[in-house]
Simulated assay, not measured.
Amino acid sequence: MAELTALRPAVRPGRRQAPAQAASVPAADMPFCRQLARLAVRSLYAELVLYPKPGLVSLVDNGSHADMDAATFMRSMFALRRYFFDIARAGMEDAPFHVLKGLGIDAEARMMRATGGINTHRGAIFCLGLLCAAIGRCRAKGTVLRPAAIQATLLICWGRELGAHSGDVDVQSHGTEARERYAASGAREEGARGFPSVFGIGLPALRRALAAGLGLRRARIDALFALMAHISDTNVYHRGGPEGAQAVRRQARAFIARGGSAAPDWEERALACHRSFVAARLSPGGAADLLGAVCLLQSVCGGLE
């Protein structure tokens, strides 16, 4: 995997870690940040082009959305390239959480300018951004890039602040409204716990499919359905309330119970699920954001456990 050469951990024997306020990224590590940013954008693209993807925007159709299409997502992705570089570098510098949060707020503003005010990637900005910071921190410490190490680094470095951030309701959105109305969890709650759905649900599902020889496309389908079956998605609650959320989990679990993408008729059943979600205007955007994070981890860690 030549594209991951730059992501091998940099071990510098005898090098003392400078305090956070004095830390800086060595010039030799700048290519690492650039490559990680490229992988983050590629992961968002991998999520976009996946199909059939129930209720979600793809290159084939707009899913349950009348206000956005694939071109909207592409503009958003291009606007986020610098953000992933900056937050990876901030992670390498052991930046405090308020710095990461500020970078995320700036990235949201750039996204909104690029899309004409449409929220395409707010959840991904939060999720993939924090993962880039944690991966950068692992690199700075010379830690082998394994999923468990990345998750532990995220919680050790910023876990307390993430916990406080999960209860911050100052910024209103469809997600915060759904949390308050239905007690549904969302990206902030996932972040506060170190994204357990990414590390414990989505990534294992993807790897099982790859180990079974199903290929990346079907592995990503299985990861998406596993996430849909598991998470409490505020995007779904906003559009469909508790009944819609129950319908999403029920259909996702039925798809998995039939063998997922290993079943001969998997594509037909995934398309039927897609049509059902579109008819009900359901869109599991939270699961899509987490799938992007799963794709990033797989690109960075490969087969490392």
Rank of each mutant, 00 (worst) to 15 (best):
L4G: 00
L4W: 00
T5R: 08
R16E: 12
Q17Y: 05
A18N: 06
A22Q: 13
S24P: 03
S24F: 14
V25S: 02
V41Q: 07
R42N: 10
E47M: 02
P52K: 08
K53R: 09
L56G: 03
V57R: 07
V57W: 05
S58K: 03
A66Q: 14
M68A: 09
F73W: 06
A79F: 02
R81S: 14
R82K: 10
F84M: 02
D86N: 14
I87G: 01
A88Y: 00
A90Q: 10
G91H: 06
G91P: 03
V99G: 02
D106C: 15
T115N: 04
T115R: 02
G117F: 08
H121P: 09
H121E: 10
H121C: 08
F126T: 01
C127V: 13
C127T: 15
A133M: 13
A133K: 04
I135W: 00
R139L: 06
V144M: 04
L145E: 00
A149M: 10
Q151Y: 03
A152I: 03
T153Y: 01
C157T: 12
W158Y: 10
G159I: 10
S166C: 13
D170I: 13
D170L: 15
V171D: 13
R181V: 10
A183R: 14
R188I: 06
R188H: 11
R193A: 15
F195S: 02
G200V: 03
L203D: 05
A205V: 09
R207L: 06
L210N: 05
A211G: 15
A212V: 06
A212I: 08
G213S: 11
R218L: 07
R220E: 12
R220M: 13
I221E: 01
A226Q: 06
L227N: 03
A229W: 00
H230R: 12
T234Y: 02
N235P: 04
Y237Q: 09
Y237H: 12
R239K: 15
G241I: 01
E243T: 09
A245P: 01
A247D: 14
A262N: 06
D265G: 14
D265E: 15
W266V: 05
C273Y: 04
R275N: 10
S276T: 07
S283Y: 09
G292Y: 09
G292R: 04
V300F: 00
G302P: 11
G302H: 14
G303A: 15
G303T: 15
G303K: 11
E305S: 07
